[in-house]
Amino acid sequence: MDLSAISPTLLVASLMVAATPILLAAIGELVVEKSGVLNLGVEGMMITGAISGFAAAVLTGSPMIGFLCAALGGAALSVIFAIITQYFLSNQVATGLALTLFGLGLSAMLGQSYVGIKPPASVKLDLPLVSDIPVIGPILFSHDFTVYAALTLVTGVWWFLKYTRGGLILRAVGESHDAAHALGYKVVRVRILAIMFGGACAGLGGAALSLVRVPQWTEGMTAGAGWIALAIVVFASWKPARVLLGAYLFGGVAVLQLNLQAAGVSIPVEYLSMSPYLITIVVLVVMSANRSKSALNAPAALGRVFHASR
């Protein structure tokens, strides 16, 4: 065992890459939940995005088109959820589960002929001089562009929710759909748009996994990342900045356990692989334990079915 082989600089740099898929999915789900909808289908949308992005990138040779198609794929799948929950007024928990089951099957089906292929390399920031600065260079200036895209998106969502009229309407819909409806806001329309945004983000997250982080396609490759993203939203008590913190925390755990595996720690590999999931549980427990604080932030209409009787 050689722990000194683990370099802190590389650890931080790689945790940012590892956290990006979860960060993208989580920030999308945050917007969905802020509009009062609980979409448990993140895992399904993520993996659909992973394969549609992968397939498009391989077919066109352009990772950019890949990411675009991933967002479209995720959004397309989320439309199914949107229609069934918003127009057919179904139970959101059950529909979200259905979306995950369907997405896993669909992606495995679409991805059959893409197993074992290498995707075209994604765009990486590489500034002369700046990227070569020790410590700061690898951490801040030499990542794949998805890392920066995710950070920009988080900032954008924070700004949108806090400072724009649209954000205010979205939050109003999530807090009390009846009141928002009475004020004349289109509850269903706002929610459908939010769900599609969430789907697109989850799709991008999936593509960040299949095109950048791994980069390869394997069946069921998200391995619970979508569910961890859901947990991060709870952990963040529905605040964008804390989503960032949460995602990087989980990225850190994932990278650290991989590094420990590589360093040959005497703990069996399987038990190290468990750690991200176990830590998710621990974090959920800690967050829910001081209920008075975190629950206040949960959108009041979260998961409730909206039916305008008039």
Partner: peptide
């Protein structure tokens, strides 16, 4: 996997 999608 088609059957899984079918069940979903």
């Amino acid at each position: 996997a088609a059957i899984q999608a079918f069940q979903g």
